[in-house]
Nucleic acid binder design. Structure first.
Lengths: 120, 120
DNA sequence: ACCTTGGATCGACGTTCGTCAACATAGACA
DNA sequence: TGTCTATGTTGACGAACGTCGATCCAAGGT
């Protein structure tokens, strides 16, 4: 099996990516891109980290605010990177601390993929 | 590390499971349960299989209708089992063929987890 | 300059995952 | 009963994943 290099997912690329899951079958390429996002939320620790950022004021949080999820600091950093690579979070350094933000457009696109699939 | 036995997810259990991701941080248990569903959609082949079922007439399809995704028949069966265990699909044997159906309630719950998280 | 602190990266480890060939099982039909 | 076809199950293998300790880099404070 060949290992494909998946580029970072841009918000607008995701939004324009795919129709609701029930409209038509996803192509192999569409499925490949979309699966990256779902996989990123498919780990309990990442889901908690993401929820911590999303529920923080302004949809933004310093790593120091959210790193108490029961795993080591390198592991937290590793998971945040995965969420960033999937396009679900963006990060920015401001002075001493690094802040993570949710990408609302990507989130909304994933949501519509599912909710509009439910209305058959 | 202890391996937890995750029971099959009932549709109503999922719907009542978790608030939108931005409302409050998920607890460890909530994250554990929810991650199972996202992980199930976190594989390209499973995503295509799911989309094939969801887009088929009536939200229902025979295995024979959807097994052309480029992997062997045992692999298709394996992935369908994963989707069933995650509560996203249900299966029923009718005579010779086995039919898979989407679980709209679970799908809608996952969608709201995301879309309502986007409206911060 | 030096030290401290926040966060990312590296290297290694055990586990889980995706895949297949081989086999098993369940109906339908003769 | 027996045979054919449609699916599920098993066992094995390599790849990917989650985790950690050790290390490194960037910013601030002394």
């Amino acid at each position: 099996m060949t290992t494909k290099v998946l580029p970072l997912l841009e918000p607008e690329a995701v939004a324009a990516c795919c129709p609701p899951l029930s409209e038509r079958p996803l192509t192999a390429e569409e499925a490949e891109r979309t699966a990256v996002m779902f996989k990123a939320l498919g780990d309990p620790v990442r889901l908690r980290l993401f929820s911590l950022v999303a529920s923080h004021e302004g949809g933004e949080a310093c790593v120091c605010d959210i790193s108490d999820v029961g795993v080591s600091q390198p592991t937290v950093s590793h998971h945040l990177k995965k969420l960033r690579e999937a396009g679900l979070l963006s990060s920015e350094r401001r002075g001493t601390w690094v802040y993570y933000r949710v990408e609302p457009a990507v989130l909304a696109a994933m949501g519509q993929l599912l909710t509009r699939a439910a209305a058959v």
